[in-house]
Each structure stands twice: as structure tokens, then as C-alpha cells.
Design a protein around this nucleic acid. Structure first.
Length: 332
DNA sequence: GCGACAG
DNA sequence: ATCTTGTCGC
């Protein structure tokens, strides 16, 4: 039996070292692309290609590093760590890679036969198992307390996690807690939970040592409004076996008609014919937010609680307060 | 030019 | 998420 929430999360892969292992497989005279590396990581939709670009831009570049062999899928050389693309072109030429007159590489020498454990594919499988463990029904008890959780990032590699509890009737803040914890996993669309859950689980462990968790926990991020129905609100809710609800501020997947939406309106979000969330608006002029069930809650209730807590701000009060607390703590 | 992906 | 000043509106 697990003692703490933190212990319930599996060990996460070190994506940076996995990428370097893949790079080492690209032979002299050949190149690969950001998309190819993404697929080699087990990310078929190449959602991680952007992160790969950012990673190479400021990785620990040593003499002899072969990161110049990663180019764009359209043949463009792309950026280089040193900031000088010509240097990258020169190294490719020295490698024996054919360059066109416009300075593009000939992708005939493209290498993509990688040997990999496909860490992102493994994490996707984990998401599917968590999605399967999600409980759709609630306990049908009127919640007395709501809580919001959120993270803010500091430039020292740590994140600040904040938990703010509110009275469900008055929406007055009744309790606050926070933690500072290291963050190693990058932000990749569809994999947000692996970046923020370690912080949030520590935070909830800390809260639990002082009091019972709130009846409903609002999470900054989606629940089942996710390509694998495993957004951070769902993953977190399943791991702690508590009711959670996801609040997204932009649409991750699916489609919804938000034309001429007015305050109080509710619009369904569908993905492949499946109803996975609702768009809601606080004010006519503000952009909508997207509510979806995390765990132990129905879409109807998740939407109801989100709407009931949307008063003076764009997001539900628990999310607004957690977000503000988190940014306030980041300074101190 | 198209498509565009939580935080 | 983060980088950022003043400014428009309730």
C-alpha cells in the first residue's frame, strides 16, 4: 500500500538523455529532423518537435557535439546553438552532406532508422491505463469545499505549486498551502501531467498532513478533454483517488463552436463524435474556458461547478486564486 | 499557405 | 508557462 500520493507516480524518463542517445545514432554524412526524433521518442504526432528545437538551442553543447545533424523536415538547415547557421552548414558540408544552392540539405541522406525504447510511447500507454481507471460517477454529495491547484515556474529549475481552498457557498478562501519542487520533465502538448504532477502530488501530500482534501479539486489543465482522455486533472484525480475537475484556458483537442458565445452560455466540445467537455464564458468579452471531468465526477457536474464558481474573473475562483497565489509566491 | 497542440 | 507598459473598460 502506498503511503503518499507522490509514491503513486511511476518513474519518469529523462528525455534529454534519450534525445542525446538518438542523436549519437545519426552517422557522419547523414542528417535527421526534429520530427524524426520526435517519432523516435515514440511521439507519432510530433508534438514534441518544438521542444526538441528549444532543447538543442540551449543544450550543453560540447566540442564534437553532432547537433548540427538535426535539420528541418523541409530541408532547411534551421537554427544552430551558436546562433550562426553558417557554422552549422559548414559542419554539415565537412560531414559530406550535400547542400543545395539555397543552403538547404539534400534529404536523401536522411537517417531515421533509430533504435529507441520510445519513452513517450510508454507514457502514452500509462495515460491510457489511467484513463481506464477513471471513475465517471460522483458521490452525489453536495460539496462543502472547493480547492484550486496550479504551478508557476522559477528560473532556477524549480516550480511553485499552490493549493487554495474555498468555501463552496461563499467562495471565500479558507486555506492555502504551497511547495517548491524541481521540475525536469519538459512541457510537451499532451504530456503536461508528467511535468506538473510531481509538484502537485508533493503539494497534496503536504496539505493532507494538515487537513482533509477539499471535496472537489479544480486543476489548471484539462481532464478528459485530451487526445487520450488523460489530461492532468484525470491523471491526478485517479492517482489520489479523489474528485477532480479540469479547467483549460485554450483548446487542446476536439472542436467547439464559440461564435457569438455570451456570458453564461455553455457549448459542447466534441472529439470524433465524443462529448469530452464544455466551453463556458464569464463575460461576453472574455475568451471561454473549457471544463471537463477529471475523476469521480460527471461532465454535467464538472460544468455545473465550473459555472457556479465563475463570478468576477475569467476562470473559476479556485483556479484564479491558485494562479494568483502561485505567482505571488514565485517572487518571494 | 496551411495547420496550430493544456501549462 | 514566461518575456513585458501602458491602457481601455467595467
Amino acid at each position: 500500500m502506498k503511503r503518499t500520493f507522490s509514491e503513486s507516480l511511476c518513474e519518469l524518463p529523462d528525455l534529454r538523455s534519450e534525445v542525446l542517445k538518438l542523436l549519437a545514432q545519426v552517422p557522419v554524412g547523414q542528417v535527421t529532423t526534429y520530427g524524426d526524433l520526435a517519432r523516435a521518442l515514440g511521439d507519432e504526432k510530433t508534438a514534441s518537435a518544438r521542444w526538441l528545437g528549444a532543447f538543442f538551442k540551449d543544450h550543453d553543447h560540447q566540442h564534437g557535439c553532432t547537433c548540427h545533424r538535426v535539420v528541418r523536415s523541409n530541408g532547411e538547415i534551421g537554427m544552430y546553438v551558436t546562433g550562426d547557421p553558417n557554422e552549422k552548414a559548414g559542419l554539415l558540408k565537412k560531414d559530406g552532406v550535400m547542400l543545395t544552392g539555397l543552403g538547404n540539405v539534400d534529404l536523401a541522406c536522411r537517417f531515421s532508422d533509430f533504435h529507441s525504447v520510445k519513452p513517450l510511447k510508454q507514457l502514452k500507454e500509462f495515460q491510457f491505463t489511467l484513463a481506464k481507471r477513471r471513475q465517471r460517477k460522483s458521490q452525489e454529495l453536495t460539496p462543502r469545499t472547493f480547492a484550486g491547484v496550479d504551478c508557476a515556474y522559477r528560473d532556477d529549475g524549480n516550480a511553485v505549486g499552490a493549493y487554495v481552498e474555498l468555501d463552496s457557498e461563499t467562495l471565500a478562501v479558507t486555506f492555502e498551502e504551497s511547495v517548491v519542487a524541481p521540475v525536469e520533465f519538459p512541457y510537451i502538448p499532451g504530456f503536461l501531467s508528467f511535468r506538473e504532477m510531481p509538484v502537485l502530488l508533493l503539494l497534496l501530500d503536504k496539505v493532507r498532513r494538515r487537513r482533509d482534501l477539499a471535496d472537489i479539486i479544480f486543476v489548471d489543465g484539462n481532464g478528459i478533454l485530451h487526445p487520450r482522455r488523460a489530461g492532468i486533472a484525470t491523471c491526478l484525480g485517479v492517482l489520489i483517488n479523489r474528485p477532480t475537475l479540469g479547467i483549460g484556458k485554450s483548446l487542446l483537442c476536439g472542436s467547439v463552436d464559440t461564435k457569438r458565445m455570451r456570458a453564461g452560455d455553455i457549448r459542447p466540445v466534441y472529439d470524433n463524435g465524443e462529448l469530452i467537455g464544455n466551453a463556458l464564458k464569464t463575460k461576453n468579452q472574455s475568451k471561454p474556458i473549457f471544463a471537463s471531468p477529471g475523476n469521480l465526477i460527471s461532465l454535467e457536474e464538472a460544468t455545473l461547478f465550473a459555472k457556479a464558481t465563475m463570478t468576477k474573473h475569467r476562470t473559476p475562483e479556485p483556479i484564479f486564486y491558485a494562479d494568483r497565489f502561485t505567482k505571488q509566491l514565485r517572487k518571494n
